[in-house]
Write a protein that binds this DNA or RNA. Structure first.
Length: 190
DNA sequence: ATTTTCAAT
C-alpha cells in the first residue's frame, strides 16, 4: 500500500462517535490517528510546531493498513524529513496500538533515533489480551509515553483536529470511562 | 458488565 496524505480535520460527529473513552465501544470499526509533529532544528532550540493531520486506517482490496502504519509510511516517505533535526511526534488515537503496530513503531524508533513519540489513546484495544498488553509494555520500555486521553487532550483535539466551525468544546461522554481505562493502563504498565 | 474493537455480515 502506498502512503496517502493525511486529512486536515475530521467532522464533529466522527469525533464524538470514535473518540469517547468507552469500555464497550461497539461499532467503532475504524481507528483515527490525530498527529502533531514538532521539530527542533538545533540542540539549543526548543521544539516548534512542524506538521499535523489525521490518518484513518485503510482497507485495500488485498491489504489492510492500520492508522499507525499509515502514519509511519507517510513519515518515512516524506522528503522534507531530515535526520539532522530532532522530532517529537504526538498521537491522539481512538484505539491503542495492536501488537503488530507496536512492533512496527519500535523498529521505526530504532531506525530514527532523532524521533520521540507520545501516544494518547481514547480507548485500549483488546486490553484483556496478553499480547496486546505486551505491545504496550514494550512501547513504554522503549521510552514512548503511553497515556489515556484526558480532558485537556480532548480539548486540544477539538481545537486542532475537528472541523468545529467555531462551536465550543463539549465533553459529552468523551471521558465516560476515562478513570477505568487509566486504571487498566496503569495495571498493564505497572 | 470479562467485553468484540483498525469489519464482516
Amino acid at each position: 500500500p502506498n502512503p496517502q496524505s493525511p486529512m486536515d480535520r475530521i467532522g464533529p460527529e466522527t469525533f464524538f462517535f470514535h473518540f469517547p473513552s468507552l469500555l464497550y465501544a461497539s461499532g467503532r470499526n475504524l481507528c483515527y490517528l490525530c498527529f502533531q509533529v514538532e521539530r527542533k532544528r538545533y540542540p539549543w532550540h526548543n521544539y516548534e510546531y512542524w506538521n499535523s493531520g489525521v490518518f484513518q486506517n485503510k482497507v485495500y482490496p488485498q491489504a489492510r493498513c492500520h492508522a499507525e502504519s499509515c502514519f509511519l509510511s507517510w513519515f518515512r516517505d516524506w522528503n522534507l524529513f531530515s535526520y539532522k533535526h530532532k522530532y517529537h511526534v504526538t498521537w491522539y488515537l481512538s484505539w491503542s496500538p495492536c501488537p503488530n503496530c507496536a512492533k512496527e513503531i519500535l523498529s521505526f524508533l530504532q531506525e530514527y533515533k532523532n524521533v520521540t513519540l507520545s501516544i494518547f489513546t481514547a480507548r485500549l484495544y483488546y486490553f484483556w489480551h496478553s499480547d496486546f498488553q505486551v505491545g504496550l509494555q514494550r512501547l513504554c520500555r522503549a521510552g514512548v509515553r503511553v497515556d489515556i486521553m484526558c480532558f485537556e487532550d480532548y480539548k486540544y483535539c477539538w481545537k486542532n483536529f475537528v472541523d468545529h466551525q467555531g462551536m465550543p468544546f463539549q465533553r459529552r461522554n468523551l471521558l465516560k470511562h476515562y478513570r477505568h481505562l487509566a486504571r487498566e493502563l496503569g495495571k498493564i504498565l505497572g
